[in-house]
Write a protein that binds this DNA or RNA. Sequence first.
DNA 1: TTTTTATGGTCAC
DNA 2: TGACCCTAAAAAT
Length: 268
Amino acid sequence: MPEGHTIHRLARDHRQKFSGQVVTCLSPQGRFSDGAAAIDQRQLTDVFAHGKHLFYQFGGPSVEIRFCHVHLGLFGRFRPFTGRGQDPRPTTRWRLTTPEGGFDLSGPTQCRVVSQTDVDQVRARLGPDPLSESDELQRFKNKLSKTRRSVAAVLMDQSVIAGVGNIYRSELLWFTRIDPFKPANTLDDDQQTLLWSTARRWMRIGVDTNRIITTIPEGEKVPSRMTKTERVSIYKKDVCPECQNPVIIDEIAQRKLYFCEPCQADRA
DNA sequence: TTTTTATGGTCAC
DNA sequence: TGACCCTAAAAAT
């Protein structure tokens, strides 16, 4: 489920539900036993996200601040529960419980207890996040102008733009009518700006709805009911909604890119 | 029932 | 570029 919007939504939900509370932590699977013990019975003081990375901050009186760093990867998943919850499935890496409820985490690429320094190091490697409150358009432009790699490859590079994943990538390139193979440093100012502002707009919708929706015109309200096919324009589609030509599937940066050749023919 | 696929990322060569 | 890690649901058989 995870592109950046999912992670930011999780941060918001978990912060609202659990921060301020003293939590019980376990690792039913066993692979996170030491980490869980290190944060067990501590107070959760904050939860925040940067790109696809999630950070849980633990304080408590007169103890060193610790963080749990979570990255869901492709398979990671949170399952919330109320009350005491069911017996965890055996793959549950981390169970966090408060008196009202908690969550089970399974399948993450990363789930480790780390220091403030570690958090800073992870974040230093990440590029600007379209979901950060401050608008980092200029940083994004600088990153783009420094590489000759294709724009399709670069949009998946978390050090260039943190949080965009494979669906948003295809959708962004189609919406902006940019040729996916165009070198990133040949984009003009309008293209750079449109990519960034569209990512910001879509991903904020993504956090609010907990879904990837890229078909709402700017300024319009998101309908309460939308089918899967209505939510995106090009990803996993057979034909281009603009010109009806067949959608091309190609692998760029190890992931399937969906695009329309005639509509995105703006070669450098 | 088995195989494939998925919104991700790292490391070695 | 390929090998590998992680898990679960959908698709194929």
